[in-house]
């Protein structure tokens, strides 16, 4: 199998990936201003919330798919897309949160506090955002060096974020749980693959 060169990854694959991840944001911006024939419909605040939320979840699952893909295909360069994709997840979740905070709640602190305390799916959302911010801040080379071996441990938080995000989606659906079930299923596969590779590794270690 052919591997792209370092130059190809840096000057071709990463820029293309950057633009691909930006596409939902471009679509949203156009729709907000009613450009290019796009529209957010009768309830733009909710449409924004659902659209940006689902894309954050999709990109989170893509981030989590990169390592299993590498293990299955041997394409090591895939790991170089991980940080950028993860930061996009943080970007989209931040829009999701700000859309909730300002257009949706009108910065009504009483209502927001009540939501966070009383409504489980919002509590989970806030927890996931907090974890994402921690991972975002510590995603730099400097932090990676400073934290050493602990960096890897800390960044395993992304598995918890995946579970929080899927549950957050599940709990806010009124009745039809088909869509959240599909996303939870994909997450289960992505986490399951990791467990599988870990078991194989352990067995090999025992044998040798």
């Amino acid at each position: 199998m052919n591997f792209p060169t370092t130059r190809q990854v840096r000057w071709l694959i990463k820029p293309v990936w950057f633009l691909a991840c930006l596409a939902p944001f471009v679509w949203l911006t156009l729709a907000v201003f009613g450009l290019a024939g796009l529209s957010l419909g009768a309830d733009p605040i909710e449409e924004t919330q659902d659209f940006i939320g689902i894309w954050a979840l999709r990109l989170l699952l893509v981030t989590l798919a990169l390592t299993p893909l590498r293990l299955l295909t041997g394409q090591v360069w895939l790991i170089q897309l991980r940080r950028m994709t993860g930061l996009y997840v943080l970007f989209y979740v931040s829009i999701h949160f700000l859309n909730y905070l300002i257009p949706d709640q009108g910065l009504d602190l009483g209502a927001i506090t009540e939501d966070i305390v009383e409504r489980s799916f919002i509590t989970l959302g806030i927890a996931a955002l907090t974890c994402l911010i921690v991972l975002g801040i510590t995603s730099t080379h400097g932090w990676r060096r400073r934290l050493g071996r602990r960096w890897q441990k800390l960044h395993r938080l992304v598995y918890a974020i995946g579970i929080l995000a899927c549950t957050h989606f599940w709990w806010q659906v009124k009745l039809d749980t088909l869509e959240p079930t599909i996303y939870a299923g994909i997450l289960a596969v992505l986490l399951g693959v990791r467990v599988y590779f870990r078991l194989i590794k352990n067995r090999k270690a025992q044998q040798s």
Binding site: A42, I45, D104, A111, R119, W171
Partner: peptide
């Protein structure tokens, strides 16, 4: 049980409409 009924969002009032 999962959300407040104290306020509502008027549909069609656009992005800057408060509940």
């Amino acid at each position: 049980p999962r959300w407040s009924q104290a306020r509502e969002r008027p549909i069609g009032a656009g992005f800057f409409a408060s509940k």
